[in-house]
Measured scan of single mutants.
Amino acid sequence: QSFTCPYCGKMGYTETSLQEHVTSEHAETSTEVICPICAALPGGDPNHVTDDFAAHLTLEHR
């Protein structure tokens, strides 16, 4: 399964590499985005909106 960065649209990330990408490239970004990992999880929330995606990844998807 691969994920797309909700900020810049780059594709092909794993859960881990998406977290690394967001932390390095978009750490200061506070735009509201939908978490693509939550959306892909069975029973996950397809509409989970977060305005601190880097922190959300760290808390929810480590």
Rank of each mutant, 00 (worst) to 15 (best):
G43Y: 05
T23N: 12
I34N: 02
G12Y: 01
S2R: 10
T23C: 04
A27C: 09
E20C: 05
I34K: 09
S30E: 08
S30V: 07
A39Y: 06
T50L: 10
M11I: 13
Y7H: 03
A39L: 09
S2K: 12
D45F: 04
A54K: 09
E25A: 10
G43K: 10
H26M: 05
D45S: 13
Y13S: 05
A39P: 06
G9D: 14
H61T: 01
I37L: 11
E25I: 03
D45G: 14
T14L: 10
S2M: 09
C5R: 00
T23L: 11
A54Y: 05
G12R: 06
E15M: 13
L57F: 10
G9Y: 04
C8H: 01
I34M: 05
V33D: 10
L59T: 15
I34G: 07
G43V: 05
H21C: 03
D51W: 06
S17I: 06
M11R: 09
S24R: 11
G12D: 13
C8E: 01
G12L: 00
A40G: 08
A55K: 10
G9I: 04
I37G: 03
G43F: 04
A55E: 07
I34C: 03
H26G: 04
P42Y: 04
V49L: 08
G9A: 15
L57Y: 05
D45N: 11
S17R: 10
F3K: 01
P42V: 09
E32N: 09
A39V: 03
E20I: 03
H48L: 14
I34R: 06
Q19V: 10
C38F: 01
E20W: 06
A40M: 04
R62L: 14
H61N: 02
P42H: 11
V33P: 01
K10L: 12
G43I: 03
E32R: 08
H61M: 00
T31R: 09
S30G: 11
E60C: 08
G43T: 13
D45H: 10
L59K: 14
H56A: 01
T16Y: 12
T4E: 12
H56V: 00
R62H: 11
P42A: 09
L59E: 14
S24G: 10
D45V: 09
C8V: 00
K10C: 10
I34H: 05
C35F: 01
P6H: 01
P42F: 05
T4R: 05
L57N: 00
G43P: 08
C35S: 04
T29D: 12
C35H: 04
S2W: 03
M11Q: 11
D45C: 01
P6L: 01
I37Q: 05
Q19H: 05
E20Y: 04
L18C: 00
V22Q: 01
A27G: 10
T14N: 14
A39W: 03
L59F: 10
V22L: 04
Y7E: 10
Y13K: 04
M11Y: 09
L59W: 06
V33Y: 00
R62W: 08
T14W: 02
G43L: 04
A27P: 14
C38G: 06
N47E: 14
S17P: 10
E25L: 11
T16C: 12
L18E: 06
Y13P: 04
T29M: 12
E20R: 04
T31K: 15
E60L: 07
A39K: 15
L41C: 14
R62G: 15
Y13G: 05
S30Y: 15
D45A: 14
P6C: 01
D51H: 02
E32P: 15
P46D: 11
S2F: 04
G12T: 03
H56T: 01
A40L: 07
I37K: 05
L41Q: 15
L57D: 01
T14G: 09
T50R: 12
P6G: 04
T4Y: 09
L59P: 04
T31D: 05
P46W: 06
C38H: 05
Y13C: 12
C8N: 00
S2V: 06
F53Y: 01
S24H: 04
V22E: 03
A27N: 13
S30M: 06
Q19S: 07
E15K: 02
S24W: 06
Y7N: 09
V33I: 07
A55Y: 05
D45L: 07
P46Y: 09
T16M: 08
T23D: 13
S30F: 13
P42T: 06
G44T: 15
L59Y: 06
E25G: 11
G12N: 15
H21R: 04
T31W: 02
T50Y: 04
L57I: 08
D51R: 14
R62K: 12
V49D: 01
S17G: 11
M11C: 13
G43H: 11
G43R: 11
G9H: 06
A54F: 02
S2G: 11
T4L: 08
F53W: 02
E32L: 06
V33G: 03
H21S: 03
L41W: 05
G9M: 13
L59I: 11
N47W: 07
P6W: 01
T31Q: 13
E25K: 10
S2I: 05
M11N: 11
S17Q: 13
A27R: 14
T14M: 06
F53C: 09
C8L: 00
M11G: 12
E15H: 00
H21D: 00
A54D: 01
T29K: 12
L41K: 15
Y13E: 05
H26S: 06
D51Y: 09
L57R: 03
A55V: 09
V22K: 02
T16E: 07
P42M: 05
T29W: 07
H61S: 00
F53M: 02
C8F: 00
H61E: 02
C5I: 00
Y7V: 14
E25N: 02
H61K: 01
H56C: 04
H56M: 00
A55L: 10
L18V: 02
V49I: 12
G9T: 09
E60T: 06
A39S: 12
L57G: 03
T31L: 13
G44W: 04
E25P: 03
V22P: 01
T58I: 10
F3E: 00
S24M: 08
P6A: 03
T29I: 09
L57C: 05
A55T: 14
E32T: 14
E15R: 04
A40R: 07
H56I: 01
F53S: 04
E20S: 11
C38P: 13
T23A: 14
L57K: 02
A39Q: 10
T14R: 08
H48W: 12
A39C: 09
T4F: 05
T16H: 11
P6T: 01
E32I: 06
S2L: 10
P6V: 01
T58V: 11
L41G: 14
G44P: 10
C8A: 00
H26R: 03
P42W: 03
A54L: 12
E60R: 04
G44Y: 06
L18T: 06
N47T: 14
E15F: 06
T16Q: 14
G43N: 12
E15C: 05
T58Y: 11
T14F: 04
P6R: 02
T14E: 04
L41T: 15
D52R: 14
P6M: 02
E20H: 06
G12E: 04
F3I: 11
L41N: 15
H61Y: 00
S17W: 03
A27Q: 08
H21V: 03
S17D: 11
T58L: 11
L57E: 06
L41R: 14
E60K: 12
G44R: 14
V33A: 11
S2E: 07
G44S: 14
E15Y: 04
P36R: 03
D52V: 00
E25S: 10
H26Q: 08
C8T: 00
P6Q: 01
T29V: 15
T58N: 14
Y7Q: 13
K10Y: 01
E60M: 10
M11K: 07
Q19M: 00
D51N: 15
E20N: 07
T31Y: 10
T23V: 13
E15Q: 10
G12K: 05
C5P: 00
P42E: 12
G44H: 15
H26I: 03
M11A: 12
Y13N: 11
T29S: 12
L57H: 02
T29F: 07
H56Q: 01
D45R: 13
A55R: 14
P46F: 08
S17H: 15
